[in-house]
Nucleic acid binder design. Structure first.
Lengths: 254, 254
DNA sequence: TCTTGACTCTCCCCTTAGGTGATACCCTAT
DNA sequence: ATAGGGTATCACCTAAGGGGAGAGTCAAGA
């Protein structure tokens, strides 16, 4: 039975001395003996155990769980492995979602950089814009339009873009989440964010008229730039889902 | 421009007050003003920034990186996102490997049907078992018990049962053969077989302590399941005969 | 025998992103 | 004036070690 010093064992197993110190202190791997000078000495049995520890550590098991696995004979390893596998798969699924979000953000970012120097409404022909504005004024009154425009103008370009992008992202997310239903936790988080953004856009005074005005501006913009933008405007189904989820959100907040 | 207290902002954004305190201290999100009493007050700008922070946090960016992303105008967000995506994909790949390893381990476990402690002590009341185990540990030391259990566990259920059955048969045979004497040829054949099985059970390292531990386990098992099992445990006379025949066997082997 | 360099010991602080609790201060409504 | 709730700061805790300080130990060469 060979004896290994901390350094030898560490080199052998590919860990640091600090790790062995830690495992010793927490009782995960005790040296077989201590010399007079309190030097740690490990035998083959400890080497074997260390390798088992590292196996489970590789699998992302917490050290405390590893201790249980190795020391508790009543421990159900099979179930632990199954559970761990499920957890890993969930983690992987989450990563998939994150990568998707990043890709969407990157796409938006590329779009964004194209529009960077431009106004949000720059792509809209002035005449159409003016025509719709007149129509809107006659429909909802000078006052409401003026207020909405003032609110919009109070944002810097960057802020406006940021809000537009976020709304865009949220809409995209929500579309994907439609199958989850309005009460889904993630959906509700998105709705909360969306509420906040709308709150900002309307200067704290939400009204259906304002929203409709903004929506129509958006449609006009999209119709004009159908080929160069991929801002998402909700279709009937998406809009219905958003309304439903928002109702649920407001009801749950009371 | 509204003002939000810590609690209001926290509720709005779905974080805790502590998080806002932390972000303030680390400079990630400073309140727009502090009241006379050092109360933090946030404006809409801060709310917006917080939402951006949370967006990147969702993507698993470290807070320090988020600070750079938001504060350094020369920062290449696109590249950061690409890099992050690559890192996430690597993480995902690693998880794939881990899941594969777990599945392989599970397959091995099931196929080999490794004898877990649970199975090992199957049919034995847990409390009694645990009590005896403790007693045995204090009597012979943790190490010996651990080694014995490890050896036992290295057998599959089927192997274990097969060995138990063979030992049982041998014991029965030997009982019948007592009148023939220890030197009888058939007796010696049984003894040889028995030695081999014991050798297996003890992992090649036979010791009287190990044997005693196993024997006591057996007795405990039998006492508990007296009505449902017909495993034979040698009584005094049988044990004496087995010892005698084994001595003869060992002597003749020299 | 002495010294030198490698090795080891223990103790302590640091890391992430906050959780939890203690203690004290502030604000407002009754 | 007091009670209740909001807030501030401080300090300790998490997992798995990293890094370093200060001191002791060991083996080999001069």
């Amino acid at each position: 039975m060979d004896n290994y010093s901390v350094k030898k064992l560490a080199r052998l197993a590919g860990v640091t001395v600090r790790t062995l110190h830690l495992y010793d202190k927490m009782g995960l791997l005790k040296p077989s003996i201590r010399t007079e000078a309190r030097y740690r000495l490990y035998g083959n049995k400890e080497l074997l155990r260390l390798q088992q520890i590292l196996f489970y550590r590789e699998l992302d098991f917490p050290l405390k769980d590893i201790m249980t696995i190795l020391d508790d004979p009543a421990f159900d390893l099979e179930q632990a492995l199954e559970g761990h596998k499920v957890a890993l798969l969930a983690k992987k699924e989450r990563i998939n979602t994150l990568v998707g979000t990043i890709e969407k953000t990157l796409a938006t970012l590329k779009q964004h950089s194209m529009l960077q120097a431009e106004d949000l409404y720059e792509g809209m022909p002035n005449e159409k814009m003016a025509a719709y504005r007149k129509e809107a004024i006659s429909k909802w009154g000078q006052e409401l339009i003026a207020e909405t425009e003032a609110t919009i103008k109070s944002f810097s370009k960057e802020e406006m873009h940021s809000i537009a992008n976020e709304l865009n992202d949220i809409c995209a997310q929500l579309t994907v989440l439609i199958p989850k239903g309005a009460a889904d936790k993630t959906v509700q988080q998105h709705i909360a964010k969306r509420m906040q953004l709308v709150h900002q856009l309307t200067g704290g005074k939400v009204s259906s008229e304002k929203m409709e005005y903004l929506r129509n501006l958006g449609q006009l913009y999209k119709a004009t730039n159908a080929d160069t933008t991929d801002y998402i405007l909700p279709d009937a189904e998406q809009a219905a889902f958003i309304r439903e989820a928002t109702s649920y959100y407001l009801a749950s907040k009371k």
